[in-house]
Amino acid sequence: MLSLNSVKSFSQPLQRLLLLSIIVIVLPACSAIPPQELEDAPETMHSVDSIVKEDVEYPVDIYDPWEGMNRSTYIFNAELDRYVMLPIVNGYRDYVPLFLRQGINNFFNNVASFNHTLNSALQLNGETTANNGLRFISNTTMGIGGIFDIATGMGFPEVKEDFGQTLGYWGVDEGPYVVLPLFGPSNLRDTSGLVVDFVATTWLTDDVFGMNGNGGWLVFYYIMTGVDTRANTSFQYYQSGSPFEYELIRWLYTSGRQAMIAR
């Protein structure tokens, strides 16, 4: 169904994004099941209602109107990770030598630096714009297309700024919490940010790196982005051991993003 030819026709970034969203949205087959209510709830030693107070703010209370769907997606992601992502990443680690994996990681980080620069500028932050811009330029040139990270050693470390942060900087509310298939925790604002960052990256890869219209390269490029990201993320589903992992991640994602925006 998804041949290289059909991908080739999706050369425009927005169309390609549409394709990606279809793949990503159609995949999860799980449906949201609401928590079962008991009619005559028997006595408990401690009742939730007697402990949880109306007038207390709980950090775990995060606006999550699509919780049922989000939980299903979370489970879908965990399964996808277990049966698809991790086996691929393990193979990648076993068969691709470290220096090559490092080079690939540097390359994708450098592509991301381009977006970090744009977003630092959009947030009117001179210092980080200069840092990220110089980082991108030096790694693209002296680092041979970003395969080597020489910028960190030169005093230009990676400072991540994405469009979700830019929106947050300009006061856009985070909106409802969303668990995106494959990508994981997000919210409405950051999801819009992902779309904008995707379009900007596509412009860079198509018009600057010249991958425009080359379907084979694009498929390879996206697969490698995913593999590289997963290989460099230590998170493992359900390894926190917490039965409240969904709540913990929702809380930590949200407060982590607030911190990234406020910094």
């Binding site: 008991l38 408990t44 401690h46 949880v52």
Partner: peptide
């Protein structure tokens, strides 16, 4: 199925919201 915080025989499944249990259990 002790009925300590969660009422006995409550059927919690993989997509049940546990947020209110999480709030209460953190206080014990």
């Amino acid at each position: 199925n002790m009925g300590y915080l969660v009422p006995k025989k409550t059927q919690l499944n993989s997509t049940s919201s546990l947020t209110h249990y999480s709030k209460a259990s953190r206080r014990l």
